[in-house]
Design a protein around this nucleic acid. Structure first.
Lengths: 259, 259
DNA sequence: AAGACTCTGTTCGATAACGCACATAGAGGG
DNA sequence: CCCTCTATGTGCGTTATCGAACAGAGTCTT
């Protein structure tokens, strides 16, 4: 029988599906991990899937590996904005262990992929039983809080173009490639602006040589350029994540924030 | 010797300073409360006082009674926005027990008054030792998360006038009177908009008979009207707070959200 | 290969908020 | 009581984003 850390290496080397692709799961102690592993359920998360509806009861927490989940709030008039995103660095469903069980926002898949989920009951048992799990989850929650506050300030003070840069970078950090598969329409609904605004901004970035795109695909050509063009918000969110969860390791890119 | 609940009644009847004026402290079990009471330090919180600076180390958590604290984020260019407010319904310094110890925002007093504080060390001891304290703090933190997300969406989609209504209502809920003592300039910096924008919006509300104001003082005349005029955001934040912390009792007003 | 559909580019006027300049008017200190 | 300081009111022109309408272009289906 191989031990947990061996399996971790194997999974990474082969780039097969593995719970270790999620940074939080990977940061668990061997003891905790081995206890929950049998209960981790591998799930497909196709684009658009709604994992929970505003006010609904949470049955699971989700640890995305290749998928990205968007938490967004839908106003009475139908307008909406993304409040935060959750990728392989995090977990969906913090309200479960925070004690609220529901939140007034919707969680839907913004980048199709896979992930693992854990039943509410098991998560709570673990949270209450293992100091380690609780600390990790609370620190992640604080990183999420940072992301939300930053979104609030950014919405008020920065241009659509700057926000687009921030959003692209945050999304890129959760992907293994430098190509995003999504339409301008979708990005617009994430940022809560008009689709035309994204067309404008993306056009500018393309002319500046930072990105290149075609129907439903965006390739980032110059990451450093994007970072310079983005507002400070990206850096703050990134730095806080690294500070709060150093054991989750560095993301694919963005080494300059990993200090 | 009087017991805790006797003292609570006495404090309320006499309207003297008492830790029970803070809803979270009041919601603690007698056992926990009696343990921390000797360590609660009564502090004055004059307008403008900075309780902590972005990135600074937290030495205490603060439980406001009559003061209101504003968490705001200050951008590199000096612009700023309030991300959330903390009054007698809450506690300042959640990052302490969430495990981060610092947050990238500034906390300053937006309405002068008083409160109690507890040393970091004692707070942590209690958090780790008493299940009750931990649950309460986590549920409050989730309410705070709701407030932050709502701020993000509100910043994007609602007019200055609607936001002013929301802000007035939230502030009013934390005060025993229906008069706020602050300048338009100050409100503007809270909402992250121009002072002239507030002058406009406040003028409209006054003409509509909902408020009346003079230099540095705003009196709310028609609370129901304000609620109707505000965006949905106020109600959502309020309802979540009541849902998550029912034991903190209803606020002075806003009974319609206490369902 | 053709057609349908969806995504992207572009236009136009409308609107909300900004930035600045300056006038007026309370409030508090000497 | 006057004077000064600061808060509030108002009027510009400027800018960013919105809202709606439509043309072109890619992609997928049949």
């Amino acid at each position: 029988m191989v031990c947990a850390s061996d399996r971790k290496m194997v999974a990474i080397l082969l780039l097969r599906h593995s719970p270790y692709q999620n940074h939080l799961l990977a940061a668990l102690s061997a003891e905790v991990f081995e206890r929950i592993e049998p209960h981790l359920e591998f799930v497909a998360m196709p684009l658009g899937d709604v994992l929970y509806e505003s006010g609904g009861q949470l049955q699971h927490v989700y640890f995305p590996t290749t998928a990205i989940i968007s938490l967004h709030y839908i106003l009475e008039n139908g307008a909406s904005s993304e409040i935060a995103g959750v990728g392989n660095e995090g977990v969906l469903g913090v309200s479960l262990f925070m004690g609220g069980n529901t939140t007034p926002s919707r969680a839907s898949v913004s980048t199709g992929g896979h992930g693992y989920r854990l039943k509410q009951r098991l998560m709570m048992d673990e949270f209450n039983r293992a100091e380690h799990m609780m600390r990790l989850m609370l620190r992640y929650t604080q990183a999420l809080i940072t992301q939300m506050s930053q979104t609030a300030v950014c919405n008020r003070h920065h241009s659509v173009e700057q926000q687009l840069c921030r959003w692209l970078l945050l999304t890129l950090d959760r992907l293994p490639t430098n190509e995003l598969t999504l339409t301008q329409e979708l990005i617009a609904s994430m940022l809560g602006v008009r689709r035309e605004g994204i067309t404008d901004a993306a056009g500018n970035l393309q002319r500046a040589g930072m990105i290149s795109y075609r129907r439903g695909h965006i390739t980032v050509l110059n990451r450093i350029g994007l970072e310079k063009h983005a507002c400070e918000c990206y850096g703050v969110v990134k730095k806080e994540l690294c500070r709060l969860l150093p054991e989750t390791g560095k993301t694919h890119h963005a080494e300059r924030f990993s200090k």
